[in-house]
Amino acid sequence: MSHLLDRAAGSTTAPERGSDRGPTLPHVLAAEWTKITSLRSTSWLAVATVVAAAGLAFGLGLFVRPGDAGSGASLAVTGHVLAQFGPLVLGVLVGTGEYATGTFRATFTAVPRRLPVLAGQAVVTAGWGAVTAAAAVGASLLVTSGQRAGAGFVVDAADAETVRLLAGYVLHQTGVALLGLAIGALLRRATGAFVTAVMLLLVLDQFLAANPGRFTDLLRALLPAAGARMVQGDAQVAALDATSFGPDLGAWGGGLVLLLWVIALLGAAAYRLRRHDLS
């Protein structure tokens, strides 16, 4: 990491210009971007995410018939169930990578303030998540075009629900990537971070859904899995709110819950990074 920071700064004398405070945030961002894009696993995760999203959308589209409820946009975003694991894994790997390889010592020697490193990781992870999500939803729209035509589904860019679903897909995937980063940076162990993230995003949500009640519905609404509401159709969200004892979050309310989890966990990771040792 330290040699990447020196290269991003454009000179070996960059640390002298920044004195003991280390490289500036733009230099850290450049280093983090170089690091994430130079890993072969990053490219494979992007490809796997796009394939998973498009493959699941295409597979479910085989069962669509004329007169079915839904829309072209809702069909295209159905692949988020599988596709979310790509951004999640990437976030966890970015958050834990320095600790797994032991390069965190060199990194934080080069960046003594530490927090710019976490900020840089958050920015590049969000960027990767957003770009990959956009590619995934684009591929899903492409592979389901024939199925949409056969079922009479249209993708209307002037329709508010369509815009929400497509934008919500990108935002949801980006949020999941940042959630993985935050948990990884907080726990610093890839296996534990991934298991924890899956529990929050999938296992606990499904367990609570299978045991409805006032308390369990409230807990379910407060889990980061509520962010998936952004990729659910208006009718589906309305039905969920009508049958749940929890708060009526709507679609964007679920996204807000996910955002608050990301902020809280990144804050906890920043506190640990700033105030505790690096073991």
Score class of each variant (00 low, 15 high):
residue 3 H to G: 01
residue 5 L to T: 02
residue 8 A to N: 07
residue 10 G to F: 07
residue 12 T to Q: 13
residue 13 T to L: 15
residue 13 T to H: 14
residue 16 E to K: 15
residue 18 G to Y: 15
residue 22 G to C: 05
residue 22 G to F: 03
residue 23 P to H: 07
residue 24 T to M: 11
residue 25 L to H: 11
residue 27 H to Y: 13
residue 32 E to P: 10
residue 34 T to Y: 12
residue 34 T to Q: 14
residue 35 K to C: 13
residue 36 I to A: 11
residue 46 A to F: 09
residue 46 A to L: 14
residue 48 A to R: 06
residue 51 V to H: 00
residue 54 A to Y: 01
residue 56 L to I: 15
residue 58 F to P: 06
residue 59 G to E: 11
residue 60 L to A: 05
residue 62 L to F: 12
residue 63 F to E: 11
residue 63 F to D: 12
residue 67 G to T: 07
residue 69 A to F: 14
residue 70 G to P: 08
residue 78 T to V: 14
residue 80 H to Y: 15
residue 83 A to Q: 01
residue 84 Q to M: 15
residue 85 F to C: 06
residue 87 P to A: 09
residue 90 L to Y: 03
residue 92 V to S: 00
residue 95 G to L: 01
residue 95 G to M: 02
residue 97 G to W: 03
residue 101 T to E: 06
residue 108 F to S: 03
residue 111 V to N: 05
residue 115 L to W: 12
residue 116 P to L: 03
residue 120 G to L: 06
residue 121 Q to F: 08
residue 121 Q to R: 10
residue 126 A to N: 08
residue 128 W to C: 09
residue 128 W to E: 04
residue 129 G to V: 06
residue 129 G to K: 02
residue 132 T to Y: 01
residue 133 A to T: 05
residue 135 A to G: 04
residue 138 G to F: 06
residue 141 L to F: 08
residue 146 G to K: 14
residue 150 G to P: 08
residue 156 D to K: 05
residue 157 A to G: 12
residue 159 D to P: 06
residue 160 A to P: 15
residue 161 E to F: 08
residue 162 T to E: 11
residue 163 V to D: 04
residue 163 V to M: 08
residue 164 R to H: 09
residue 169 Y to W: 11
residue 169 Y to H: 09
residue 171 L to T: 08
residue 172 H to N: 11
residue 172 H to A: 10
residue 179 L to Q: 05
residue 183 I to A: 08
residue 183 I to G: 01
residue 187 L to A: 07
residue 187 L to F: 07
residue 192 G to T: 07
residue 193 A to K: 00
residue 195 V to A: 11
residue 196 T to W: 08
residue 200 L to V: 06
residue 201 L to G: 03
residue 201 L to I: 07
residue 206 Q to C: 11
residue 209 A to K: 10
residue 211 N to V: 15
residue 214 R to Y: 10
residue 216 T to G: 03
residue 217 D to L: 05
residue 217 D to E: 05
residue 230 M to N: 03
residue 235 A to N: 06
residue 235 A to Q: 09
residue 238 A to T: 13
residue 238 A to F: 08
residue 243 T to M: 09
residue 244 S to T: 12
residue 244 S to D: 04
residue 246 G to K: 01
residue 246 G to V: 03
residue 252 W to T: 06
residue 255 G to K: 04
residue 257 V to W: 01
residue 258 L to I: 05
residue 258 L to R: 00
residue 260 L to M: 09
residue 263 I to W: 08
residue 263 I to G: 10
residue 264 A to Y: 05
residue 271 Y to A: 12
residue 274 R to G: 13
residue 279 S to F: 13
